[in-house]
Amino acid sequence: MTAILKMKGLGFSYGSRVVLNGLSLAVEEGEMMGLVGANGAGKTTLLRLVSGVLKPREGRVELAGVDLPGLRPRDRARLVAVVPQSPSAPQGFTALELVLMGRNPHLGLLQWEGPRDLEACRRAMELTLTWDLASRPLSSLSGGERQRVFIARALAQEGRLLLLDEPTAHLDIGYQPAILDMIEEIRKETRITVLAAMHDLTLAAQYCHRIAILHEGAIYALGKPGDVLTPENVSAAFGASVHIGEHPVYHTPVVLPLGRRGDDG
């Protein structure tokens, strides 16, 4: 395994508020890495730096040896695709029309989508089980269906790195593992590298090869879920006391929050 995404000494601040400070992280080709951290720890900022929405104040971001911030937006979008946390729902567009937007980085200014682009969209929509929804207006889709359509749009970009910003944030308990199972299958089939900001530590442990804990603008801990998700690490990064158990089926760490009630027995 070789590192495909490398961040070195990454720094970023919104005005005077420093969000990232000397962050270094390497993501290996084909792996699924979970990015966890407290609210405001900078998970989304990190993803926005990698996807080129923000420019780093200092440090480097490289994908397969190419300096990402230095690329034109179009070239960057051919390498990196993003599934946003709360996708916008433009009015009057069908699911297919939205997925076709993912072909933009492969098209010139005056070029229209051709059969090759339709084929890429069909593949992406079949992987996310949304091809049957292709001609439905976006506004008629449920939250989970829409989420899958946005994943299809990212896949239609045919990039090498997929960034997910809390992919299960607005989904119910049945849909959460379903989406992550789907990502897992897509990763196996397309060998795309996945970096996902995750809110739910237990789900992250269940689905990610490695987990990076973001704290105070840098990576606080990095490694296999079982090694990283310890009560000490979680307490330091989240300021929360937790009990770490073991998943009865998958034998991955299960993170259970402890409140003050626990003392009463």
Binding site: P73, R74, A77, F93, E97, M101, N104, L109
Partner: peptide, 21 residues
């Protein structure tokens, strides 16, 4: 620019991530 205008129907950050300057 009419095709690019379609991409402005999602929010600006998304448009950027889809390769729009």
């Amino acid at each position: 620019y009419s095709r690019i205008l379609n991409l402005f129907q999602v929010d600006e950050d998304e448009a950027r991530q889809l390769g729009v300057n």
